[in-house]
Amino acid sequence: MSAADIELVDLHKHYRKGRIDIPALDGLSLTIDAGSFVAIMGPSGSGKSTLLHLIGGLDSADSGLIRVGEHRLDRMSERELTAWRSRHVGFIFQMYHLVPVLTAAQNVELPLLLFRMPARERRRRVATALEVVGLADRMDHRPNQLSGGQEQRVAIARAIVTDPDVILADEPTGDLDARTSQEILQLLSLLNAEFGKTIVMVTHDPRAAAFGQRVLHLDKGVLDRDELNPARPAAAAHAH
């Protein structure tokens, strides 16, 4: 069981579309404590996904500091970021993105192929991850034999199988009905509460955001509001 705090200082990220310069993050600074569950909200183009990608080492900022645990991502090369991601981050996407020709267990096993690990240990981890998400009896099912909610559970198992410090979820309930969304969000809360994982979730849905201990509202690349959720135990979180 591991978790990492996150520190972002004066982050700037701009995109260019032809001659037009589009600011995605404009001097954003914040910290997220280890083991907290943070929801990020905001209108389209506010910089939510960009922030998630920067924390996950999928992209580099134009300037600013990004620290996740002991690791300074802003000083890492592309290759170092790739290696870091495989060990420290688990991603959950809106559309699950499972490999259709592999079974649930094989999809979960995929990130473990990057590790030097005996096959028996890999199988043990896969079984544990699927058990955590409640799909131990669906190991040999292919994605087209699973419901949307079950597919997302497999994606969550894939995200946690490497025992990452941080779980980053990009609209994880965006493609699910209300009841299944609740189940998925409860599962994320469980991962946060039981396993102490730091979870950062981007969402448009206020009901999903309500599962976070803290809700960050972005607008035009800056932090507009930082709210603690009274319904959840407060996590130590500070905006600069």
Binding site: L58, F91, L114
Partner: peptide, 14 residues
Amino acid sequence: IRELAVFKALGFSA
């Protein structure tokens, strides 16, 4: 494309 992007996100090198 998106599946390969996910592979990269999972930590598969370019």
